[in-house]
């Protein structure tokens, strides 16, 4: 029993149809912002003047096949959030796309600005997703320089704060640095923005540092999200599992 059930999701859909109308202006602005950001990225990637700027000569021929493997196996689907919670210990999001639209469990959910969560239950026309605002699962993350750790959340931290622990004392951390997802996670594509560092605390007990991260997504009002399907996830899992089993057998 969860809110992907048709009878339950029906009421959430009705409610969201009404409240959606009042949010149209904000939706429009957020989509425009996102569009501008993507256009800027596209321009930087394609329309650089090679003759003027020698630093932009990229190894097109070498990278081409690599790039196609890196990016083409993520399939994006758009969905609208019909219900969302931020106050519980495990927060869930209901979206208006289901199995019929190609949503599957364990797909990643991202908003226009940052990551959102993981799809858990799917019905015919709806799906629920566990938001990253949950106390059960953490997410592997990295800093700009590649220092990897994990991002977790506590209920008392509230919806505008994620936590991250850095144990290496030699790493330099600045306020405002970005935190990204890693490729270790089979869920999210690598290098997606999680958030920016808001505050740095030193934990005296073990001399590690606790980072307060402001999530890039505004969980208080989400309108549109994208579900991401990793096409090669099965292949990767199978390979990794085989390797692990082989190692386990060799040890014996």
């Amino acid at each position: 029993m969860n809110s992907a059930n048709l009878g339950v999701a029906f009421w959430y859909k009705k409610q969201s149809d009404v409240s959606y109308y009042f949010a149209l202006k904000e939706v429009n602005d957020s989509l425009l912002n996102e569009n501008t950001r993507l256009k800027r990225q596209l321009a930087a990637a394609t329309e650089s003047d090679v003759l003027k700027d020698s630093s932009v000569i990229r190894k097109e021929l070498v990278n081409d096949s690599v790039k196609s493997v890196q990016y083409a196996h993520y399939k994006y689907l758009q969905a609208r959030v019909v219900n969302n919670s931020i106050q519980a210990a495990s927060n869930f999001i209901t979206i208006n796309r289901g199995a019929k639209d190609g949503i599957e469990p364990n797909m990643a959910l991202v908003s226009g600005t940052g990551i959102v969560g993981r799809v858990t239950n799917v019905s015919t026309h709806f799906a629920t997703a566990l938001s990253i605002l949950n106390t059960k699962q953490s997410l592997s993350s990295k800093l700009k320089d590649g220092t990897s750790s994990f991002v977790y959340w506590e209920q008392a931290a509230g919806p505008d704060k994620l936590l991250m622990k850095i144990t290496q004392p030699e790493i330099k951390i600045h306020k405002g640095d970005s935190v990204f997802t890693t490729s270790y996670s089979t869920l999210f594509p690598a290098d997606m923005l999680i958030g920016t560092i808001q505050k740095v605390f030193i934990v005296k007990k073990d001399n590690s540092r606790l980072l307060h991260i402001k999530p890039a997504t505004n969980f208080r009002n989400m309108d549109y999200v994208y579900a991401i399907k990793n096409e090669f996830i099965e292949e990767r899992r199978r390979l990794e599992d085989t390797t692990q089993t082989q190692q386990a057998l060799q040890k014996k």
Binding site: N84, Q87, G158
Partner: peptide, 22 residues
Amino acid sequence: VIILNNIFLNWWVVPAGFPVFV
């Protein structure tokens, strides 16, 4: 379900740790 669950109340915002509740 339809009205209250969508209003996340914060009595005040200034102490950032103040709980959000429904």
